[in-house]
Write a protein that binds this DNA or RNA. Structure first.
Lengths: 366, 366
DNA sequence: CTGAAAGCGCTTACAG
DNA sequence: CTGAAAGCGCTTACAG
């Protein structure tokens, strides 16, 4: 592959001049610029980003470690992160932890070794030594969705408290009194918070949340299936199962179907995190929707602020309840309930990103 | 961040010796090795992958450009690619083209600038100049799922021909005679092939495929919705709609539902690409399943063969029909039909990857 | 406006 | 077994 030396030779200038042209440095004669550009084109030259990074000590790259790519919520998040990063002149490298702390650490390590400029993490656990090291080492970092308590890192997340309350109100109104939840891991903030919000909301209606009605899941489908089976084996099975994410709701559906039971007649189902398929499941599933796209964008903004020396801000956005038919109420049409602009109304496809800067050789400095 | 110099100073050796220890070079005294390792630990040193790449001219990184992250098929593919790559000692950087050729080019360019060791692409179009350049430039490359004809690059894909025939047999058996398809872009191989396979299968039953029964989609949900609306507006609407991917099937479902019609009573629906949610849609959707995980793994194997100087092989794996209820036949239980081990039976979670190599400082040379 | 030179953090022949 | 040195491809003060 042609290097800057080849271009310099071809153009009859020094590599310094070539570099200046490529970086839009003002003090280059029009003549030199023309010759360099011609040489670049003739040789099909592209600057080596590795060398540039070594020299400038910046990679213009963000790392994103998500808990599970197979979860549409995180896929959506990743997409909006990449889009916003691109708009700001950064690339993003995604690491998928599959809800496994060891894999998460693997990706954090790899990303750090690559000297990414900043790290976006949705932690799978309460904070491994490596993760805490990363924070202490001063790598710009922002937590998205989940976070690690007691650590001084901005957090961009959504607050489901009010929406969970709305959900319980909805369920209570339908006459349900025995409600169960499939929780995420207690080592994750979202794992805990959603149970707590649920418990608090039940409390407001004088309803208990006995241990038997808390299924321990891990945010993956299989755990939702197992937890639901356990519920169904109870002497008095719950009337409602609330899955703390969409994958566990999928597992719950598998378990319910395997027993030949019907939703919502035999048992009601609701989920945290809304996905397009919930409109078409049998029956359509009542869910709590997060403003996922906006979360991703806000997280990137905060991280880039931090990287570029501006003070980053934590952001908390409200989630909202979307009522469908899985809890028993007839809903003739898609009914969006209660509060806040919809994350579902958020188009699946977001507006096209700005055109790429055209000259092949400009580093996007934004 | 500590550099190799700091480690050398701390250990009282030269940087060459530090480098040898880190790379498991045999000729290092036990004493030196001990001191270096101690220094590494004391300083929390991690080698700078950027510098290493510049020097060795390899990044141990694969690029993967997929057409759409929001499509669960590609998400699954990406996951298996990353897993297999990790097992072979490579990282992967994912670029999401969103079915946009310009975005695809953006990612190919960025990846090439980063000097990835090899590129896995599922092309969004028939081959942009940039893509063809990339091939000619000698960057190791493998196509997955979709490919560009006339270019000498190994292809790892699945052949849906037989499964599409099975589908048509199934539909014909149910008495359907007016069949329509929502096609993908004609610029993509899968866009064309699926229509051709469908047309050929219809032909075998003496059925026509009039132009009015070919909806032009772009593999995204919205296009499926529009195409379906057009079908429904026909004087004689089709009895069956076959969507060439799962996202367009989602759009079709939206359109059908918006008119208050029922599947399969008013219109039957089938899709290419199976996803877990198809079991729980109303009704469960008949689909053609690809061996997605194996496709991803085979693609990585081929690419790494190419990178490491072994002859890479193209791979074609059969897809298979999974009959559910969306075309009219009562299927009391999940019925997996006809041929081949199932991609759905493929566990959603694949077996855990091998443990990471433990010493922090070893380059995974595999 | 331009070029020679130093240096980013590594690896690796080459000598000893 | 070990170290001094060159060099990977860039960028950027410094001098002119």
């Amino acid at each position: 592959m042609a290097s800057i030396k080849d271009v310099a030779a071809e153009a009859g200038v020094s590599v310094a001049t070539v570099s200046r042209v490529l970086n839009d440095h003002p003090s280059v004669s029009a003549d030199a610029r023309t010759r360099v550009l011609a040489a670049v084109k003739a040789l099909g030259y592209r600057p080596n980003a590795v060398a540039r990074s070594l020299r400038t000590d910046q990679t213009r790259t963000l790392g994103l470690v998500i808990s599970d790519v197979l979860n549409p919520y995180f896929t959506h998040l990743a997409r909006s992160v990449e889009e916003q990063a691109r708009a700001l002149g950064y690339s993003v490298i995604i690491g998928n932890a599959d809800e496994r702390p060891d894999l998460q650490d693997h990706h954090v390590r790899t990303l750090l070794d690559r000297r990414i400029d900043g790290l976006l993490v949705s932690p799978t656990d309460g904070g491994s030594p490596l993760m805490l090291d990363a924070v202490r080492s001063g790598t710009p970092m922002v937590f998205v969705d989940r976070w690690i308590p007691g650590v001084d890192v901005p957090v961009v997340r959504s607050d489901g408290q009010a929406a969970v309350h709305d959900l319980v109100t909805h369920l209570h109104g339908l006459g349900h009194r025995r409600l169960a939840i499939i929780a995420g891991p207690a080592t994750t903030t979202t794992g805990q918070e959603r149970v707590e919000a649920f418990r608090r909301a039940l409390g407001a209606y004088g309803l208990p949340l006995p241990d038997a009605c808390i299924g321990q899941g891990d945010f993956q489908a299989e755990s939702g299936r197992r937890a639901t089976e356990r519920f169904l084996d109870l002497a008095e099975p719950p009337e409602v199962v609330f899955a703390a994410d969409n994958l566990m709701a999928l597992g719950a559906l598998d378990a319910i179907r395997a027993r030949g039971l019907r939703v919502p007649d035999d048992i009601a189902l609701a989920a945290f995190d809304d996905i397009p398929w919930f409109v078409h499941t049998d029956p359509p599933i009542t869910a709590i929707a997060q403003p996922t796209g906006e979360l991703g964008r806000a997280a990137v903004r905060a991280l880039v602020d931090r990287i570029e020396g501006r003070p980053p801000a934590s952001v908390t956005l409200p989630a909202r309840l979307v009522v469908r038919r899985s809890c028993g109420e007839p809903a003739p049409r898609e009914r969006v309930a209660f509060r806040e602009p919809s994350a579902l109304q958020e188009p699946l496809r977001e507006p096209p990103a700005p055109r790429e800067p055209s000259p092949v050789m400009n580093r996007s400095q934004s």
